[in-house]
Design a protein around this nucleic acid. Structure first.
Length: 598
RNA sequence: GCACCGGUGGUCUAGUGGUAGGACCUGAGCCUUCCAAGCUCAUGGCCCGGGUUCAAAUCCCGGCCGGUGCACCA
């Protein structure tokens, strides 16, 4: 089993990832993906795009990573992402200052709203103590810590902007245009793959908790009353679930079930969430996560975000710990409602009734030429209030006069000036705020998981070897081409093959240095699934113009005509073709190398 | 952010108050016709700053980075 140190060492040495800016001492929480890592990550993103964008018929966008303050006022990140910390001088522990106040001072429920100074004064005033060591916290500075990176947009003081802490907001704020693009029809889904930023207090464990990371998110917009997910497409998908009751029970166990059965049993409350768990399960299998070290865990009530009614995480076991690699949240109308409220735009869709409905509606059409001279500047507001009153209490207009209140002042208007009437109106539909179901993936964590789950050691021909058993689709290098020895005839065919494979879009490496075994080991270590070796038998032997293809995990080889090579390799590397190396063993001559893995 | 431990070629490491060795890797050559073989040669290093000292990679202090624990993770 791979240890974290093994992966770190391999990653640095073979160019998967390493700490950034090391020549200047480095900065915690930032990593650079090297050539192999960037390719692996790119392949993971492509596979995700195929599964969650293309196959589901969704659309992908690319929004800015810097967004203005207003976005995060609406989203709640400015407040919710902002922690007030106070540090104990005695024992050094940090505590949430606002929570201390709320827990210990009667009558204060939202200490965060009071501001830093007021909270500091309250701590001194009530002589609050450190919960850990009971030392007095009076006089300790209360400091703001916001997990968002702040910047300023434009010259001078500019206007405040923030690096997005999740890609989701870039989709939500563009909802009005995306709705137009979708021609106003629910359901529709919008995806985005890109970086997000969180100024973590303490980045840890290499690439697992970093300050800049890549998310792949889908925001599925649905009509909560009408839209059903196509559950039938995933109902037979097997999953390992770890629901709340099992987590809370003494000997909690995983539930091995199918998506269909889990919905039936109510284990997963939301069919939409269940649907995406099924889609995700298929995807994780496809890219090569070890399903024995994978589970879907339901959020405990306490860890659930305030907007999410049900939430599940995809978790992978890494170096003995479970880490979150994706989250699936039913966000309701939280995000769109908030942006609808904070902006002047409408974040709703028009939902047409099956049949137009005729409703009786009380309306007013105030005579502004009478209201204006009489009430001056208040006239417009009075008219608005009359309109509101008509909807609220039509009977108020039965009397001679009707009165409304504007800014605390009461105005009395003759009823006939209001032009009250009850009209029959035909309504063809209503504006509803779509609900959002959000599968949100951590790409970097997925990449790390794949590395650790793929990391393998065995013996080939009595020699120890390390190899990455990556799924061919995501392996950073597709194929390696070797001339068995440096001999003109072999070099010629090798370079022909190299050129052909590369021009068909494969990522191909070429290596003619050192012994063949060393070259195989180099590729094994970065997870290259197939090595093509040009030998003399393939040029002048019984089967001329053939080359050998070696499979990484088994070290088995088959002899394939050079003319078939491109087609066969392409088929092996594409997930949608179910061609496997076993099919090649069936179809071609197996090379007896006398070499085997054990 | 606090505490503990650590930081020596690309990687893994030995080591001492007098500026450093090994292994692997990498490159060149020889040899080699299928799994890290051998031989020759070569490239490449003491995290940064300050202090103590005739002299610091080594001792001290601070910083940065990493690992672990605590806290944090909307």
């Amino acid at each position: 089993m791979a240890k974290q140190a093994d992966i770190m060492e391999l990653s640095k040495r073979r160019g998967f990832f390493f700490g950034s800016n090391e020549v200047y001492g480095g900065v915690a929480g930032f990593y650079t993906f090297g050539p192999q890592g960037a390719a692996l990550k790119r392949n993971v993103e492509s596979a995700w795009r195929d599964q969650f964008t293309v196959r589901l018929g969704n659309d992908e966008i690319e929004a800015p990573t810097i967004m203005p303050e207003a976005v995060f006022e609406a989203s709640g990140h400015l407040e919710g992402f902002d922690d007030m910390l106070v540090e104990c001088a005695e024992c050094g522990q940090s505590h949430r200052a606002d929570h201390l106040i709320e827990d210990n001072v009667a009558g204060i429920e939202d200490a965060e709203a009071l501001g830093l100074e007021a909270v500091g004064e309250l701590i001194a005033e009530h002589e609050l103590e450190c919960p850990a060591c009971s030392a007095s916290l009076a006089g300790e500075p209360v400091e703001d810590f916001n997990l968002m990176f702040e910047t300023s947009i434009g010259p001078g003081t500019g206007q405040p902007g923030y690096m997005r802490p999740e890609t989701a907001q870039g989709i939500f704020v563009e909802f009005p245009r995306l709705r137009e693009y979708a021609r106003g029809q629910l359901p529709f889904g919008v995806t985005q793959i890109g970086p997000a930023y969180r100024n973590e207090i303490s980045p840890r464990r290499g690439i697992i908790r970093v300050r800049e990371f890549t998310q792949a998110e889908l925001e599925q917009f649905i009509d909560p009353e009408e839209d059903e997910p196509p559950l039938a497409t995933v109902e037979d998908v097997s999953v390992t679930l770890y629901p709340v009751p099992e987590q809370e029970s003494e000997n909690g166990e995983y539930i091995e079930t199918t998506i269909g059965a889990a919905v039936e049993a109510g284990t997963i409350a939301s069919p939409w969430v269940a649907y995406f768990l099924g889609i995700a399960q298929e995807w994780y299998e496809r890219v090569g996560v070890d399903m024995d070290r994978f589970r879907f865990r339901q959020h405990l009530p306490g860890e659930r975000a305030h907007y999410a009614s049900d939430c599940w995480d995809a978790e992978a076991e890494i170096s003995g710990n479970w880490i979150e690699i994706a989250g699936f949240a039913y966000r309701g109308d939280y995000d769109l409602s908030k942006h609808g409220k904070y902006s002047d735009e409408r974040f709703t869709v028009f939902k047409r009734y099956d049949e137009p409905q005729t409703v009786e509606k009380a309306v007013v059409d105030p005579d502004m030429s009478a209201l204006g001279p009489k009430f001056g500047g208040a006239a417009a507001q009075i008219a608005d209030e009359l309109t509101a009153l008509a909807e609220r209490d039509p009977s108020a207009f039965d009397a001679e006069t009707v009165s409304v209140e504007v800014d605390g002042e009461r105005y009395t208007v003759e009823s006939d000036i209001a032009n009250f009437s009850v009209e029959e109106q035909t309504e063809s539909g209503e504006h509803i705020t779509p609900h959002v179901v959000e599968p949100s993936f951590g790409v970097g964590r997925t990449v790390y998981t794949l590395l650790e789950h793929a990391y393998s050691e065995d013996e080939v021909d009595g020699e120890e070897r390390t190899y990455l058993s990556l799924a061919p689709e995501v392996a950073p290098t597709d194929v390696a081409v070797f001339p068995l020895v440096k001999e003109d005839s072999l070099l010629g065919l090798s370079s022909d093959i190299l050129r052909e494979l590369r021009s068909s879009g494969l990522s191909v490496t070429y290596d003619e240095s050192g012994s063949i075994g060393r070259r195989y080991r180099r590729q094994d270590e970065i997870g290259t699934a197939f090595c093509v070796t040009v030998d003399r038998d393939g040029i002048e032997g019984d089967e001329p113009n053939t080359v050998t293809v070696r499979e990484r995990d088994t070290a088995a080889q088959v002899r394939v005509p050079a003319s078939e090579l491109n087609t066969e390799l392409s088929a092996l590397l594409r997930s949608e073709d179910s061609r496997s190396f076993d099919d090649l063993i069936e179809a071609y001559t197996v090379v007896e190398t006398g070499v085997s893995t054990e």
